[in-house]
């Protein structure tokens, strides 16, 4: 569903293997808007940055299945149930697609998944919040997928070919998800009082975590510079956040809902909506593992993986038997 600028520090002791001439030639390709493909030479740091970003994105898709999956069995109509199931299935497809893209950089899916399961790898902070009512499914589609699209549309022009191409397809589906989420919100806001309250409550809870999805403010951002230079990142965290706010505030007004930000105001001069202070302490806590659902999410992924081990072993054992039988025949 979503990639997040987590701004982890690069390993300090990483050896710099590239010589200056190679780096320069690589940068020239980037500057010429050339696409880097899996078999091309690339700086180790470029490979590492992308592996981390793409795999975090994949993990986010897979973990993101959990909060929404929480409502599949309780969806309030068969149409909603089918749509939600299809959506969560899409997220899984995105995850698989992205793991495959990450694998083109030389790290296996098993290794990447292992990093998620052991808690070594990060995923988007937003999925560590709970889905408490049906309206949360609307709010996630509208806001979380909306924020994801803001982030991912520029990634369609990312310098790394497999990631950029994956994003084109992913963005098409996300855009459908976003409209579906908004349509849930429209239905709720036109509904009875209990439904309108549910919609407002969901917006209240998801708004700020969604603004955090864009990552730390530019002033505190440590290494988007290199990502920008390599054209992995095309816009800064704050630029994307502002785009999201500008697009979303009128949509909330259309729904007749109030954004939970008393400082929110439209600036006639700049044409932008100005928003209040984001609680970055909360963000840091969630990233550090202390969000309301971090433990549950990882536990659920680990449980599925552990309980599925015998199934994967059986499939492997059968494949080996079949291979041996063929060889003997």
């Amino acid at each position: 569903m979503y990639t997040q600028a987590l701004n982890a520090k690069p390993d300090a002791g990483e050896p710099q293997l590239e010589d200056a001439a190679l780096l320069e030639a690589f940068q020239a390709r980037i500057d010429a808007e050339d696409r880097i493909e899996p078999n091309d030479r690339m700086p180790a740091a470029y490979r590492k940055t992308l592996t981390r970003q793409i795999s975090q994105h994949a993990h986010s898709e897979i973990v993101g299945m959990l909060p929404e999956g929480n409502w599949i069995t309780r969806a309030p109509s068969l149409r909603r149930k089918a749509a939600l199931l299809a959506k969560v299935q899409d997220e899984c497809g995105h995850g698989l697609y992205l793991y495959a893209a990450a694998e083109t950089l030389g790290t296996s899916r098993e290794e990447l998944v292992d990093q998620l399961l052991t808690g070594k790898a990060k995923y988007s902070s937003i999925f560590n919040y709970p889905t408490l009512t049906w309206a949360d499914i609307g709010a996630i589609g509208w806001l979380v997928d909306g924020a994801a699209i803001m982030n991912q549309i520029p990634l369609c022009r990312c310098s790394y070919g497999p990631y950029a191409r994956a994003m084109i397809r992913v963005c098409k589906e996300e855009s459908f998800h976003q409209r579906q989420g908004y349509e849930i919100m429209v239905t709720l806001s036109k509904g009875n009082e209990a439904q309108r309250e549910m919609a407002q409550d969901a917006l209240n809870r998801w708004w700020w975590p969604c603004l955090m999805m864009f990552g730390p403010p530019d002033a505190a951002s440590q290494h988007s510079d290199q990502s920008t230079k390599w054209k992995i990142k095309r816009f800064s965290n704050d630029e994307l956040r502002q785009k999201f706010v500008d697009a979303t505030v009128p949509q909330a007004h259309y729904l007749g809902l109030t954004l939970p930000d008393p400082d929110l105001k439209f600036n006639e001069q700049t044409g932008h909506w100005e928003y209040g202070a984001i609680d970055w302490d909360e963000f840091k806590q969630v990233i550090a593992g202390n969000g309301p659902c971090n433990r549950d999410r990882l536990a659920a992924r680990n449980k599925a993986h552990a309980e599925g081990a015998w199934v994967r072993e059986a499939a492997l054992a059968y494949a080996e038997k079949r291979h041996a039988r063929k060889a003997a025949a």
Partner: peptide
């Protein structure tokens, strides 16, 4: 649909859904 997100492998999450 109860399996969605909890299957033994991602391919089965997709297939069961």
């Amino acid at each position: 649909s109860e399996w969605c997100g909890h299957a033994p492998m991602m391919e089965e999450d997709m297939a069961l859904a």
